[in-house]
């Protein structure tokens, strides 16, 4: 069942004069519960704008967003409630921390939901454990934490609202490899537990190929391609045209194939590639 669906969504920032094309134009896609969609597109293609229409921060000029089959804007006064269901994690979310302690900051969203203190405490413990935030750090001021630690606190603040749809704008920008893996594992775990739908914007094709079921390619505010990871990455020429690329390891496989090796090139993760290469050698020996 689709948990989040958009239909012919269009939006243009009012300050931009009408001679420019729309910021996002005619966007239709649907996300099932438990599914992960990755959004790729070059800088300025409208990714962040699209994400903000999904939780009602931006009201589209035309088109509709359906959350659990219901129009997101059916009652504009209740849009605040909808934002607890579609949890949006902004680019560099650490800059939004403001409370005295990390603990209180994570509690901000759940408090706004009107949850009881015990429930909030339960959730904070659960999600800080999931994200590897230590007891010690929970009681520190968020401004005393390192960038990566702040990022975890910010993400915990959204997860603690237990949204049905988790929307992340470049969640791993500026993190080290261990931080990235940890973050993605936490998101996966959350998804397994709650069967939430996840949408991730990222510039790292490697990360996306690991995380996503489907990919949505944006360019100039329009959907250029929407399909399984395999479908999208197989058309590497089209991606190159849009200023994007396939994962590094896929490029290696394509090169090997071009060199005349009888090898599969529809491979998008390093693990798969290793298996395929080993397989190739054991066959040719």
């Amino acid at each position: 069942m689709s948990i989040l669906k958009t239909k012919n969504l269009s939006f243009t920032y009012p300050q931009i004069s009408s001679v420019h094309h729309a910021t996002i134009n005619d966007i239709s896609f649907s996300l099932d519960s438990g599914e992960t969609i990755g959004i790729i597109g070059h800088t300025g293609s409208g990714k962040s704008t699209l994400l903000q229409t999904l939780n009602g921060l931006i009201k589209p000029d035309s088109g509709m967003v359906f959350l659990n089959e219901k129009d997101l804007w059916e009652n504009p006064k209740e849009i605040y409630q909808k934002r607890f269901k579609v949890g949006l994690v902004f680019q560099y979310p650490e800059y939004q921390l403001f409370e005295e302690t990390a603990y209180k900051d994570i509690a901000y969203g759940p408090k706004n939901m009107g949850l009881s203190d015990e429930e909030i405490d339960l959730r904070i413990n659960e999600y800080s454990a999931l994200l590897g935030i230590t007891e010690d750090n929970l009681n520190k001021s968020p401004f005393e934490l390192s960038g990566g630690e702040k990022r975890r606190v910010a993400l915990a603040g959204i997860l603690a609202m237990e949204p049905d749809v988790l929307v992340l704008d470049e969640p791993t920008a500026g993190l080290d490899p261990i931080g990235r893996t940890m973050l993605f594992n936490a998101i996966k775990e959350y998804q397994i537990k709650t069967n939430a739908g996840v949408i991730i914007v990222s510039h790292s094709m490697e990360d996306l190929s690991k995380m996503c079921d489907k990919l949505l390619v944006l360019s100039g505010g329009e959907i250029k391609k929407f399909g399984s990871v395999k479908d999208v990455f197989l058309d590497s020429a089209e991606l190159n045209n849009l200023g994007l690329d396939v994962p590094m390891v896929t490029r290696v496989m394509l090169e090997l194939k071009a060199k005349g090796l009888d090898i599969r090139s529809d491979i998008f993760t390093v693990d798969e590639a290793a298996k395929e290469i080993l397989n190739f050698f054991s066959q040719s020996l």
Partner: peptide, 15 residues
């Protein structure tokens, strides 16, 4: 920046 922070807090239910 103000715009961004406002949006981010609204996403956490700030009214």
């Amino acid at each position: 920046e103000t715009d961004k922070i406002m949006s981010a807090q609204k996403a956490r239910g700030a009214d």
